[in-house]
Design a protein around this nucleic acid. Sequence first.
DNA 1: TTGATTGCAAACTATTTGCAGAAAG
DNA 2: CTTTCTGCAAATAGTTTGCAATCAA
Lengths: 132, 132
Amino acid sequence: MEEQTRFRLSKQRKVILEELRKVTTHPTADEVYDMVRKIMPRISLGTVYRNLEFLCSQGLARKVGPAGAQKRFDGNATPHAHIRCRVCHRVADVPVHLEAPMLAPEDCMGFEIEECNIEFEGICPDCQRKTC
Amino acid sequence: MEEQTRFRLSKQRKVILEELRKVTTHPTADEVYDMVRKIMPRISLGTVYRNLEFLCSQGLARKVGPAGAQKRFDGNATPHAHIRCRVCHRVADVPVHLEAPMLAPEDCMGFEIEECNIEFEGICPDCQRKTC
DNA sequence: TTGATTGCAAACTATTTGCAGAAAG
DNA sequence: CTTTCTGCAAATAGTTTGCAATCAA
C-alpha cells in the first residue's frame, strides 16, 4: 500500500550537496548554480532547483526564512511575533509580547543590528483538520 | 541641497491603508488588490504594489518576513539563528545558540507549532562602509 | 532493465517599470 | 499650474515543469 520511492545519488546531486556544505554564505539557487558550474559546467539551473528542493525535503539542507513565495503585509507597524502555517502559508499574530533576545556585541559579526524577527512555524487549525 | 519630496494622499493610497488596517490576516499584494477592488473597482495591481511599498517606507505598514526576493539555502540543517543584511540581503549565522522562546498553549491560536525561527536584521560590515 | 534524474526550453508566478493622462495640492 | 500619482501593458526576476534522453542501481 505504501509507495516507496527509490532515490539515486546522481553526480549532480552529490556535487550540489558538497558545495552547499562547503560554505556558510546561505547562497541563493543561482549562487549554488554558479558554484556547481565550476565543477560541472553542463549542469542546468533546473537541476539545481530540483535538487535543493529535494535536499530540503530529506532534511539534508534548509531554506532560510519562511516558506511561501509571496510577500505579506501587516497594517500593524509595531514589531511583534508571527505564526506562519507550513501548509497554507497563512500568517497570524502571536497574541502576547515576546522579549527579543539580545545579542552580545562580539556575536554580531560586525553587523549593526536594528531588529529581531521571531516567527513560529507550524500547522494552522484549518490545515490540521484537512491533513487527517 | 536636500531633495524634499512631497507626498500626496490619493484616494487609492488612502483606501489601501484603510483596508490593510481593517484586517489582521497579513494579506499578500493580490489579496489587498481584491479587498480594495471591492471599493475602487478600477484600481490597478501596480498601484497596489507601489503603495504597499510606499506605506512600508513611511513606517505605516510592514512586510512580514525577511526582505529580498530570492530563497536562500543552508547546508547546515540544524536550526540556528540568522542575521540578515537589510541592504545586500546577505545572511550570516549567529555564532551562539539562542534558546527559542516558548509559547503557552493558549497563545498558539490553535496552531500546532513545530519550530521557531529567529532572524536578526541589520546592516553588514561591508554595507556600513558603503553607506558612509 | 527500468524508473529516477537530467538538460533544455517553455511556462508560470510574483513583482517592477515606462509612459501618457489624471488629479492632488 | 506643477508634480505626484494612476491605469495599463509590457518587462523582468525567480522558480517550476514537460519531455525525450541519460544514467544509477
